[in-house]
Write a protein that binds this DNA or RNA. Structure first.
Lengths: 204, 204
DNA sequence: TTATGGCTACCATCTAGTAGGTAGATTATT
DNA sequence: AATAATCTACCTACTAGATGGTAGCCATAA
């Protein structure tokens, strides 16, 4: 027997991430899942309820992903690179970040949904701030780096790159940005081809 | 006599940037400008025509802004900071970037509009790449920085920060990100409180 | 005179959401 | 074990209102 609710969530997520929240309708979703429009209301009474459930599921998946990254990657830069690769799959699938898509329509969003979005992003920023603070402490990051400000910057960069490269250069463009971001966090190489005012060195 | 077309453009831009493209309607716009819905069609035959006109006007304003920045700021970092301050006004006004808002709904956008958006962002990336290349050449930027990749990163960071901080911490949050971004482009400070094990000469 | 720019009055279609019903499974009661 | 009550998941049919867009009329200004 099929799990209609799960199918609704999966297809709705694809629709929202591709066309925006008010750009998709129960009609579209009904067609995608092959049930009648009215039946969707049995699972999600209102469109807002559906949106909240979408964010909840998306958030839970990210919770798991963040924990997995911390477990698998010991190094701060590697963690941020792994974090960035989650956004990369969005670019590859041609889908924006669910929460960014919703955030765009901020002015028309119900308060509860707006609050959930804020919680989602605050959580990511807090996670990154810890990762960065640890990296600062063990010297694997550029000295002088401000973990709090840089955490916000990292989320912003990846969110922006996903929006941008979904439109422009796809995963190739995204990878460039992710590489530039990681480079900007690394400690300056010393003694290499470009210590000081001399030439700049290659990138690897 | 009033310039209705200009008023329509101004109000439509506010509506789109606040609620998304399919989140605003001719009905909303008619109310905002105090004319009848049907009269809008006299100025903009279809909603797509209106969107194209919005992007054109937005693009033209940015053309002027980019030129003004180059004229006023001699230094690469100062130019990028000035560029970032344009996004900051969006945060202050509670409005997203017009083109980012439209890009979110990529899958339902008419081809012509999607192409205009790509042109808009490509232009910004090209402009930044030049600014960064010049900054690399005159030594005012971190050595080893890749202008092409970093240009994409800068646009992504600012677009992402605008989306994010409009929802979260407002201009205070945005300023943090902008500061972290500029810091990440500067040459490493030397001799300061946190020089690595090796000294090196000053950069300014 | 002829555009221009607005109007009223439409239209077909789509929107989220409701009402009420049905077939089948599950659970409770005898 | 048989029956009764309830629940689940879907359906058809509908509503009121919004949507983008059209047709055609009328005032004013060049």
């Amino acid at each position: 027997m099929r799990d209609t609710r799960a199918e609704l969530l999966a297809q709705a997520e694809i629709l929202v991430r591709g066309r925006g929240y008010s750009g998709f309708s129960y009609g579209d979703l009904a067609e995608a899942v092959s049930i009648r429009k009215a039946s969707i209301h049995h699972h999600f009474r209102t469109k807002t309820d559906l949106a909240l459930a979408l964010v909840e599921a998306y958030d839970a998946r990210y919770d798991a992903a963040l924990a997995a990254i911390v477990a698998a990657q010991p190094d701060a830069i590697a963690r941020i690179e792994a974090y960035g690769r989650h956004y990369l799959t969005g670019v590859e699938d041609g889908l924006g970040c669910l929460c960014a898509v919703l955030a765009i329509e901020r002015d028309t969003l119900p308060d509860a949904l707006r609050a959930e979005l804020a919680r989602f992003f605050d959580k990511h920023i807090a996670w990154l701030e810890r990762v960065l603070a640890e990296g600062c402490a063990d010297g694997s990051l550029r000295p002088g780096l401000d973990p709090a400000a840089t955490a916000r910057m990292v989320v912003a960069t990846l969110e922006g790159a996903l929006m941008l490269e979904r439109l422009l250069a796809g995963s190739a463009g995204f990878r460039l940005t992710l590489a530039a971001l990681c480079d900007s966090l690394r400690p300056p190489r010393i003694g290499g081809p470009n210590a000081l005012s001399s030439e700049r060195g290659d990138t690897i």
